[in-house]
Design a binder for these strands. Sequence first.
DNA 1: CTGAAAGCGCTTACAG
DNA 2: CTGAAAGCGCTTACAG
Lengths: 337, 337
Amino acid sequence: MKATIYDVAREAGVSIATVSKVINSKGKISEERRREIFAIMERLQYQPSVIASALTGKHTYTLGLLIPDIANPFFGEVARAVEDRGHQLGYSVIICSTDNKDERIEQYLSVLKQKRVDGIMIGTGMGNADTLRELRGAMPVVAIGRELPAVPVHAVVADDRQGGRSAAEHLLLLGHRRMAVLSEGMAVSSSRDRLHGFRQKLEEEGVPLPERHVRPCKHRIEHAKREAAVMLEGSDRPTAIFCCNDLLAVGALQAAKEAGIKVPGELSVVSFDNTVLASVTDPPLTSVAQPMERIGAAAVDLLLEQFGQGAAPARRRVTLRTELVVRASTALAPHNE
Amino acid sequence: MKATIYDVAREAGVSIATVSKVINSKGKISEERRREIFAIMERLQYQPSVIASALTGKHTYTLGLLIPDIANPFFGEVARAVEDRGHQLGYSVIICSTDNKDERIEQYLSVLKQKRVDGIMIGTGMGNADTLRELRGAMPVVAIGRELPAVPVHAVVADDRQGGRSAAEHLLLLGHRRMAVLSEGMAVSSSRDRLHGFRQKLEEEGVPLPERHVRPCKHRIEHAKREAAVMLEGSDRPTAIFCCNDLLAVGALQAAKEAGIKVPGELSVVSFDNTVLASVTDPPLTSVAQPMERIGAAAVDLLLEQFGQGAAPARRRVTLRTELVVRASTALAPHNE
DNA sequence: CTGAAAGCGCTTACAG
DNA sequence: CTGAAAGCGCTTACAG
């Protein structure tokens, strides 16, 4: 049978209270006793039960992470960052891939509550504002990667607007004037902000961005490819496309290839996220990098900060800068106008 | 304060034992009472504490998943499959990215024990056989994706040998005779088996595979690129390369491009895993697909099967077939010999 | 069909 | 510096 605190106490000839204290470095215990007790724990292969200690009102040292899909490289990298920071601080993370489905979200939330996790990070859409409001009343929550509409919660996000701007700046500097955008659904705040920043910069420079050149896409390569193909038809086609994530950019690349349009010679493509995909395509993608490591770490920190405090302190936002990583998918605009 | 089983019992005018029974569908409770109690639980927003119930000797309904890196697309897909199957059956999964480092492995294992997870899936290397032996004595374990040396544990793996064979068959059919292999370290059983199957098939057909054309690589694109570049020097260079995973194949593709060697015209590349990367490169990769979904699901099933049984039942292995997915990175061998 | 009581393995005041 | 006792929120025989 597994050793318990009673076994350790008996061996050491002390009370379980004393053992508990040495485990948690609390109270004053003579150095000698503490050594002895550690030795006994070692010998008995004693592993204190987090379950039992959690029941006594302490933390479970477990966090929940809601994301659309852990198999998506972007979320995989974010999850890794969350995991690492959590691990450093003594927390484990339970992954919850929601596919952005309300049903799965509710199920996972219920499970996480029953397991009494110490807090939840939400990187997925949340259709139901009531659910979120209720959740926020029950435990610390932080939005990660995107804002959650309707309910004010802490959030850590990339500076999507500035990221969009820097994509625009890059293309403008290369002389592009006819541009297009492949965006995600407008329900996603991060995607809206990227587009907003991009468009704003173009407006400042007096470069038009016709509505028909802004196409929202589902989060799938084939879909992006189809949308891009449509954009690339006709003679007044754009010389540059800004894609709101790497997957969309892959679709754009494939569409261009099928249409016999050379990237970057005849078409520049700027992407967003800078996941591993960006370095794997041919040509490799110029991409606005999100600081995924820092996003993950900040989310954990923001979550843990809330432990001390009572219910719902002032809302906090952490915005992290993006950085344009230039690769081979962008070049000077063709001057055959 | 959070509602407890006592609150529900009080409201319903019954004992906590009765409430417990309706929660767990145990014993005989009149239909009327059961409805009433459910209604009260609903009204009180009662969420039974998994913590408390776990302490009573039941399961924690939490599983541990050890993998090298959740940010690696292959493991991300496996993790997703594990998560889904676990979720279906009422289990959560804690991710543990080990980077194959013994220190991290030990830390995570210790945490998982303290949290009393119901079982552990190991998809990472395990240098220390003693650790594993000890672990296996303490709780259900299954190896996932590769064998664990030295200690017999249940395992679910792809049929790597057959996968290697089918890669070879494909290339032979296309007329290739001068082949090379980019493999992972030989410590990894799956990589060994892939190479073994590949080589065996070649031998059967009397096609040589010179030792200098078999190069072990680290799990990084740049490293693979460098190794491939060396292989592609000289005039007797291979007309086909078999890469033991998608990342290595990306490296090979990049090396070929830099050397001005056309894929698939002058060089065919076959990959293994068939992660999202395989469909993103240019040309997209012909790849031996691992059935990641089924691997993940089988691992969970194999783990849960052990719950009923006493310590260490007979060792079981589940081997799942691979499938060659042909894309555009392979073609007929050039006949300019 | 229902309930009283013991017990799971800890932590936390409180007393000494 | 150390220990006795209550309590965390459940489940499980056992008795009725």
